[in-house]
Amino acid sequence: MMKARRSAILQHARQAAGCSVVAAFEPENVFYLTGFWGEAIAVCTENGTKLIAPRLEYWRAEKTSIDCEVILTERGGELISTFVSQIKNSRACTDCSDYSTVESVRKQGGDIIVVNTEPFFQTRRIKDESEIRIIAKASRILDKLYGICEDEIKVGLSERDLQAKLIYEAMKMGANPPSYKSTLNPLIIAGGPNGALPHAEVTDRKFRKGDMIVVDLTLRHAGYIADATRTFALGSASTEMKKVYAVVQESQKAGLDAAKAGATCGQVDAACRDLIAERGYEKLFIHSTGHGIGLDVHEPPWLRMKNGEVLQPNMAVTVEPGIYLENKFGVRIEDSIIIVNNGKPQVLNRFTKDLVVVG
Results as ranks from 00 to 15, higher is better:
residue 96 C to A: 12
residue 97 S to E: 12
residue 97 S to H: 08
residue 98 D to G: 01
residue 98 D to P: 00
residue 99 Y to H: 13
residue 99 Y to D: 13
residue 100 S to E: 14
residue 101 T to E: 12
residue 102 V to R: 10
residue 104 S to Q: 13
residue 106 R to A: 08
residue 107 K to T: 12
residue 112 I to C: 12
residue 112 I to N: 14
residue 113 I to Y: 06
residue 113 I to M: 12
residue 115 V to S: 10
residue 116 N to T: 04
residue 116 N to W: 02
residue 116 N to M: 10
residue 120 F to Q: 05
residue 122 Q to G: 15
residue 125 R to T: 10
residue 125 R to V: 10
residue 126 I to F: 07
residue 126 I to S: 04
residue 126 I to D: 02
residue 127 K to P: 03
residue 127 K to Y: 06
residue 128 D to A: 13
residue 129 E to D: 15
residue 129 E to Y: 11
residue 129 E to Q: 15
residue 132 I to Y: 05
residue 132 I to S: 03
residue 135 I to Y: 09
residue 136 A to G: 12
residue 138 A to S: 14
residue 139 S to D: 03
residue 141 I to H: 05
residue 141 I to Q: 05
residue 141 I to D: 06
residue 141 I to L: 11
residue 142 L to D: 02
residue 146 Y to M: 06
residue 146 Y to P: 00
residue 147 G to T: 07
residue 147 G to S: 09
residue 148 I to H: 08
residue 150 E to Y: 06
residue 150 E to L: 11
residue 151 D to M: 13
residue 153 I to H: 11
residue 153 I to D: 08
residue 153 I to K: 10
residue 155 V to L: 07
residue 155 V to Y: 05
residue 156 G to M: 04
residue 156 G to T: 04
residue 157 L to Q: 05
residue 157 L to N: 03
residue 158 S to C: 14
residue 164 A to S: 11
residue 166 L to F: 13
residue 170 A to W: 10
residue 171 M to E: 15
residue 173 M to P: 01
residue 179 S to E: 06
residue 179 S to T: 08
residue 179 S to A: 03
residue 180 Y to S: 01
residue 180 Y to M: 01
residue 181 K to P: 03
residue 181 K to N: 02
residue 181 K to Q: 03
residue 182 S to E: 08
residue 183 T to S: 14
residue 186 P to R: 03
residue 187 L to V: 07
residue 187 L to T: 01
residue 189 I to K: 01
residue 190 A to E: 00
residue 191 G to N: 08
residue 191 G to I: 02
residue 192 G to P: 02
residue 192 G to Y: 04
residue 194 N to S: 10
residue 195 G to S: 14
residue 197 L to M: 07
residue 197 L to D: 08
residue 198 P to D: 00
residue 199 H to Y: 04
residue 200 A to M: 03
residue 200 A to Q: 01
residue 201 E to L: 05
residue 202 V to G: 00
residue 203 T to H: 03
residue 203 T to A: 04
residue 205 R to K: 15
